[in-house]
């Protein structure tokens, strides 16, 4: 996981707790607002895939609709709240992008 300052850390998380990636990042105390709590409504848990991710599930319509509205999203953008923590995340490198400002 690459944080906003560029620092990278390898994270290990259990895949049997029904966590999504956003919840996992919060558990690791990354700064993420996740205002809407995981409903793909606020876009503040935005991450970009830097490497890997071939096995990730396709985006749902709700996720694509929100990604459309995030000004800095790109083709490798995902909402971390829509990614379940399981084997598909193995070996992926993500960059945290979600906005923090509340003004």
């Amino acid at each position: 996981m690459e944080d906003r300052d560029g620092s990278r850390k390898e994270l290990e998380a259990p895949d049997d707790m029904g966590l999504n990636l956003m919840e996992m990042l919060k558990a690791f105390e990354y700064e993420i607002l996740a205002t809407c709590g995981g409903m793909a409504l606020c876009g503040t848990c935005h991450v970009k895939i830097l490497a890997g991710g071939e096995n990730l599930p396709e985006q749902s319509d709700a996720e694509l609709d929100m990604l459309d509205l995030i000004p800095d999203s790109e083709s490798n953008s995902r909402l971390s709240c829509q990614l379940q923590v399981n084997d598909t995340l193995e070996g992926c490198t993500f960059q945290i992008c979600g906005s923090l400002s509340d003004d």
């Binding site: 607002l33 205002t35 809407c36 409504l41 606020c42 876009g43 503040t44 929100m66 509205l69 995030i70 000004p71 509340d102 003004d103």
Partner: peptide
Amino acid sequence: FGLSPKLGPIADWGLDIDKA
């Protein structure tokens, strides 16, 4: 780019706020 939820003016009412 759509609407996004913000705390807005509530932040200015002298209330203790923690992470929005």
